[in-house]
Design a protein around this nucleic acid. Structure first.
Lengths: 343, 343
DNA sequence: TTTTTTTCTTTACGCGCGTTAAAAATAATA
DNA sequence: TATTATTTTTAACGCGCGTAAAGAAAAAAA
């Protein structure tokens, strides 16, 4: 498979018996050269294992074959899972994904944007931090790089937004919980990092009002992305102090719910809809681990696959059409109720 | 902060009143130019926001400021967490981390290696898939790129290895479990993807023998990285069929343990060392979620920070000394017993 | 076979920056 | 102030490839 190392395209062209510009053409699109030539080049490739220098290639192109992906916190399995799917799709489309995590840090998000801009990506998929994002930096970035915003909506940022239909999902869960028992208390952070949480809170309040129930917000005080810990501590407090006005708790997201379940277990409070349980707990997101909590967590699934697929679809259409979208289409994906043991 | 866009270093040099070669020198090391010149350049930077074209820079350097990081499966919180720490350290050292996940796929691992090679990284931190890795491809890669192997040891690959002291950790846990109750059964996959698992199995067998207890392996048949599911299914089978010869289970890793706990809960088997519990379960890895399982998981912590810190340290010393290491130093980090409620 | 169309080869320039050698300017030392 | 050491400027080449123009060759159509 290999002989001597080849320095550059010039050398490789000589070895394959084809001129350099034609070889260059081949590497940009193998179909663009005649079959006979293609055979020659590919035969040479078998013996010499040459690949164009990626830096030289990118220097001479306005846009590269890179697609940037920024997520707010990669150690969160939710984003890890979405990133994984997006990467796979991007590779299948023949692009190279560049995955960056902001690790919950505003400055890192900004420098991730700067790093991507340098790389001249064909497009970027951006899931911003949300509340703590540097809005101006993001808007500037989106002016220069074709971007699709997903998960956390930053109004006006990017050419399109793909996110969750928090209203539909929240209504559905409240309806379910109320129909099968008591209306829920809402368990959340007072200052959540993610705007989805705000939408969910408002949807909770509106729905409860509409249904004629009195809402109750149980709020955690913490900051940051250590949501399980925040949920755990707050749940312990709320249960111990008997702060919950009903026997049903709707958590703003699954990670808080996981902390809640841990606290409940520790305090000997049995959770579930079965006999002998004193509390029901539901979550939101269908976290990869929600299937294995004790009890298994009733939650709302936001189809990972669809978010990934739709985002990549839009990005690809942007790249192909080579122009920005006129309006800013917003896709809100409906959630699906995942009924398990906890509620 | 910004005026007109600057095309290249030539233009920026003109604006700052310094010659281009000197500006180039400045960007490679600001300390290498006279203070008066530095002031001029930095003053210009305030107004014009110019940064050297990364492709042109890298094309003209043998090595870049990139440091590659490859992990086998980023959606696994264990690797997500390690990757996060490594990234942070790498950035602090003034390098740019390029994080790639193999998503459990041999071919993707190989193409990740190829992608990195193209990028001419200063060094690479590689956590391979393990059993399913293409050993030859990895060895070839390591010949060409200075690499540090961590987590899964591929014998002879890379300039150094940093991993877990599986023997010490396993012995410690068995000793603890035996001292506080019955000796454990070992719960694992028959064909684990990761070589650590094999080391742990062997350490279990050896330690049990040495202590004069009869070992028992309870093995899951699954393949792949969906460990919680595999643990869950196998635990259900083992508990239902009463396959466990003692009341204590030592899981090869925390993700299997999480599945185990879920199954036990579902079957109404109380887990823990407290009164009224019929089973003890321990894990291995101190998975980020092991703190929130029900009951909280007794496990062995492999200091994330140390793995990340040591790996980056070695990489940096390799880069600075500009030469390969003579031998292949192997660092095995001792585990720490994390006593929680499950055992 | 001749004409037309398509594709390839040759030649050459440009991308933005690293780097070097010689000349010029500046700083440090005597 | 004169001398020496250090840094900067000027000028120029090279990195590896994209790309454009003009002529040559091959394939397709007449």
């Amino acid at each position: 498979m290999s002989d001597s190392k080849i320095r550059n395209m010039e050398e490789f062209a000589a070895l394959s018996g084809v001129s350099r510009p034609t070889v260059s053409k081949y590497f940009n699109d193998p179909e663009s050269v005649r079959a006979s030539i293609r055979t020659k080049i590919e035969a040479a490739l078998e013996h010499h294992d040459y690949r164009p220098n990626i830096f030289a290639v990118n220097q001479n192109r306005k846009l590269t074959k890179n697609i940037g992906i920024i997520v707010p916190y990669l150690a969160d399995p939710f984003f890890a899972e979405i990133a994984r799917r997006i990467e796979t799709l991007v590779i299948a489309e023949g692009f190279r994904p560049i995955l960056l995590s902001s690790h919950g840090d505003t400055n890192l998000e900004v420098s991730n944007l700067e790093a991507l801009r340098q790389i001249k990506p064909a497009a970027v998929l951006l899931a911003p931090l949300g509340r703590t994002s540097d809005r101006q930096a993001i808007m500037d970035f989106c002016d220069n790089v074709p971007t699709v915003n997903f998960d956390s909506n930053i109004e006006g940022a990017g050419e399109a937004f793909i996110g969750h239909n928090n209203v539909q999902a929240t209504e559905m869960m409240i309806e379910y919980l109320t129909r099968t028992g008591e209306p829920p208390v809402f368990f959340e952070m007072r200052t959540p990092p993610n705007p989805n949480a705000i939408k969910r809170r408002n949807a909770y309040l509106a729905t409860m009002e509409r249904m004629g129930h009195t809402p109750q917000l149980v709020q955690a005080e913490g900051e940051g992305w250590n949501l399980e810990e925040i949920g755990y501590e707050t749940a312990k407090r709320a249960i111990t102090n008997k702060e919950l006005s009903t026997n049903t708790v709707f958590c703003s997201n699954d990670r808080l719910a996981i902390g809640f379940l841990s606290a409940a277990y520790e305090l000997g409070v049995k959770v579930g809809h079965a006999e002998g349980c004193s509390l029901r707990v539901a979550g939101h997101d269908n976290h990869p681990f929600s299937r294995y909590t004790c009890p298994t967590l009733t939650t709302i699934s936001h189809n990972y696959d669809l978010i990934a697929t739709r985002s990549v679809e839009i990005v690809m259409s942007m790249i192909e059409s080579e122009q920005r979208l006129e309006e800013r289409p917003t896709t809100l994906l409906d959630g699906e109720l995942i009924m398990r043991a906890s509620a």
